[in-house]
C-alpha cells in the first residue's frame, strides 16, 4: 500500500514495481478475505465434527478427545470469574454423578482465561468431581470458536457434535435431555 509519490515515474520505466504493488495488494485482499471467512463461520453447530483437543487436568491427567471415541463427552467451558457459570455448576455435578459409574460418559470442564488457584477453589466449592483443566493458551476456546462462557458441547461416540448450548443450563433435567438420546 505504500506507493510513494514517485511510483508515478518509476513504475513506468520498471514494470516490476507495478507488479509487486498489485501482487502485494492481492495478497492483502486474500488475507483479509481469509480473516473474513473465519469471522463469518460463526459458532460451531450441531453436526460439525468436534475439533480435537488435549487437556492436562488440574490433577495432571492427560485427556485427548480422540482417545475418547466410543464415549459420550460433555465439554463445558467455564471460568471462576463468570457469574452465570455458577448457576449451572451444581447441576453439572449432579448430572455427572448420575452417569459417572456407566463408564461410557465423560464430563470435561475447561477453565477459560482463569487462574489455577481461583479455578481450583471454585471447583472445590462446588465439589466438582469430573475432570477439569486449564485452557492453556486459550486454544480450546479458539478451536471451538467460543464467544463467551459458559458454553457447553455434547459430542457423540463418533466424535460428532450433537448438542451445543451458549448459556447456562437451568436444570439437571436439561443436561439429561442432552445426553440420554445418545445412550441408547
Amino acid at each position: 500500500m505504500n506507493q510513494s509519490p514517485a511510483t508515478t515515474n518509476v513504475s513506468q520505466s520498471r514494470p516490476w514495481g507495478k507488479i509487486i504493488a498489485w501482487a502485494a495488494l492481492l495478497l492483502l485482499l486474500t488475507i483479509v478475505g481469509i480473516g473474513l471467512i473465519k469471522a463469518q463461520r460463526g459458532q460451531l453447530a450441531v453436526g460439525d465434527m468436534a475439533p480435537n483437543f488435549t487437556l492436562t487436568t488440574f490433577d495432571g491427567q492427560e485427556i485427548s478427545l480422540e482417545a475418547l471415541r466410543g464415549k459420550v463427552v460433555l465439554l463445558n467451558i467455564w471460568a471462576s470469574w463468570c457469574v452465570p457459570c455458577k448457576e449451572e455448576a451444581d447441576d453439572l455435578e449432579t448430572a455427572w454423578r448420575l452417569y459417572r459409574d456407566r463408564g461410557d460418559v465423560l464430563f470435561v470442564g475447561v477453565a477459560y482465561s482463569d487462574m489455577d488457584t481461583k479455578a481450583k477453589a471454585y471447583l472445590k466449592s462446588y465439589n466438582t468431581t469430573y475432570p477439569n483443566g486449564p485452557d492453556m493458551g486459550t486454544r480450546i476456546y479458539q478451536l471451538y470458536r467460543a464467544t463467551g462462557v459458559p458454553e457447553t458441547y455434547v459430542i457423540d461416540r463418533t466424535g460428532k457434535l450433537v448438542y451445543v448450548k451458549f448459556s447456562p443450563f437451568q436444570s439437571v433435567a436439561e443436561i439429561q435431555a442432552a445426553i440420554e438420546p445418545l445412550l441408547k
Binding site: M1, N2, L28, I31, V32
Partner: peptide
C-alpha cells in the same frame, strides 16, 4: 503521513494475517 499510515494499517491487519497464516 503515508509512513504513519503504513504503520497503522499493518498493525491493524497483522493480527488477521497472523491467524490466517
Amino acid at each position: 503521513f503515508l509512513s504513519v499510515f503504513v504503520v497503522c494499517f499493518w498493525g491493524v491487519v497483522f493480527p488477521i494475517l497472523s491467524e490466517a497464516t
